[in-house]
Design a protein around this nucleic acid. Sequence first.
DNA 1: AACCCTTGTTTCCAATTGGAAATTTTTATT
DNA 2: AATAAAAATTTCCAATTGGAAACAAGGGTT
Lengths: 215, 215
Amino acid sequence: MPEEPHFLIEEKQREEKIRVTRAEVNAESYVEPLELGKRVREIRLSQSLTLEEASKLTGLARSTLSKIENDQISPTFSVVTKLAKGLGIDMPQLFTRPKEAVAATGRRDITRLGEGKPHPTPTYEHELLSTQLTNKKMIPYRTVVRARSFDEYPEWVRHEGEELLYVLSGSVLLYTEFYEPIELMAGDSAYYDCAMGHSLVSTSADDAVVLWVTA
Amino acid sequence: MPEEPHFLIEEKQREEKIRVTRAEVNAESYVEPLELGKRVREIRLSQSLTLEEASKLTGLARSTLSKIENDQISPTFSVVTKLAKGLGIDMPQLFTRPKEAVAATGRRDITRLGEGKPHPTPTYEHELLSTQLTNKKMIPYRTVVRARSFDEYPEWVRHEGEELLYVLSGSVLLYTEFYEPIELMAGDSAYYDCAMGHSLVSTSADDAVVLWVTA
DNA sequence: AACCCTTGTTTCCAATTGGAAATTTTTATT
DNA sequence: AATAAAAATTTCCAATTGGAAACAAGGGTT
């Protein structure tokens, strides 16, 4: 029975409910159909495996594999994990858009002013740049730091990597663990280890804009 | 009810069956148990989001998020996808092991406008930022691209790594191998693999200023 | 202390997943 | 073609997921 996959149907049903909310908060974060099934099948066939063999390798039922490959179910995380283990694929590889294999063509991604992928949070208004390329060594954001008072600065953030901060306009106050807060004006920059607690507030009357690059 | 997660129990049962086969065929491409829940919580908190806010961003129920973070369910693929989209995470990042947070000593380096270390070349006028810190993952420059005519644009440059280019003022023409030259205006950015030949000239009447970050 | 409000957890249940087996389709062989 | 064997899909159903709502656990306020 060639019905529409459940989770796609469900997707639509919810669409209604959450449309407004989602649009408000994050105008542009919908889940594309992404053909997991197609990817999986490609990988299996590239190893010349039958469903039965893949089944043995992954510990998943033949039927389950078939359904996944035909996008009839949305496998659970644990199933995806088994799949990856059994077929010897990197998880990331599974999700990375196969897009044009980069091969001979160089990787390049242009982002025009204001055309990044918006990602608002209560505190900041991030705009992800260069979202076409995946597996980048750096992740660049252009971020609007909303004008706000001192005493409500956000919690420390801590994570892997290093960060470069360049103030494009306005002025901000950079809080980092182990140091006194420091005010940065347009043109100033900071480089720090993200393992230190850090957070940023705007000190200008209006919003400040910064470029943030994480490695 | 603090029972053992279903999908973990089941994991063990099947273990027996597939052990031998798996060892034969693919002895070593193990994606460890990875605590998805913990990761997700980290990421959510790093953005100072509440479950409610994350719920709005992802379109998932608060309860669902809670269960995921507490490893009480194995979310379906479509749910994981929504999660990643909503929270603005690269899928791969979700699965990559978070090397234990470096006991932070606190590396931080502030560079005031114009106080970087000058490094002039015939073509550009680089100003190295954050020169106090060594062993950085990224090397940031603020570079003035001298106004110049088209036909004397510099040779390709090729080297290791990836580069982010952000135009601070003026406009420039970015030449990269495999692509047509493209004009970038203030606020535009480009990300590319440095293995591609690349070079930059200014197209504005006066000098252009760009931020260049190499990883 | 009683109350309200926010954040996170748990319960309940309808909807979906995943396995075993049945069924259909494809491929190979006469 | 006809048949057998292999491979893939579908069906059926028990087990699990995911949403709504109830619940619990703080934080402030009055």
